[in-house]
Design a protein around this nucleic acid. Structure first.
Length: 104
DNA sequence: CTCTTGACGCCGG
DNA sequence: TCCGGCGCCAAGA
């Protein structure tokens, strides 16, 4: 399966639909879209602008790469995201359960 | 065409 | 828990 031409748009749309205080893993986004994988989603996020809530799309273990951690921590504090003492998002609590009809 | 590069993920030690 | 190691796969050089 190759990536659809509007893949970037799909990824950004999903990212923007994540509610405050919740998060999805790169792999979750890929699954929702039904195309590509975590690395493809990550690539799109790396190119995305400040308009998208990038801090709500994290690694499966709730972390983000080092250079993004400080900024993300601010957002998490501001929107009450569930994070552990180590600063990583507690995916068991913060993981967003998307509405079934999201990708139709 | 081959090779490297990642905002990744899972598994075993 | 924390690493290494390996698989993964689109893009760009």
């Amino acid at each position: 399966m190759s990536l659809p031409p509007d893949y970037e748009e799909l990824v950004l749309t999903v990212a923007e639909s994540i509610p405050e205080g919740r998060a999805l893993a790169y792999g979750d986004v890929a699954e929702l879209i039904g195309a590509g994988g975590p690395r493809q989603v990550a690539r799109v996020m790396s190119l995305a602008g400040a308009a998208v809530p990038w801090w709500r799309v994290v690694r499966a273990d709730g972390t983000l790469p080092e250079r993004l951690r400080a900024g993300a921590a601010q957002r998490y504090r501001a929107e009450g995201t569930a994070v552990g003492r180590d600063g990583r998002v507690d995916m068991r609590l913060a993981r967003w359960r998307p509405p079934l009809g999201l990708m139709t």
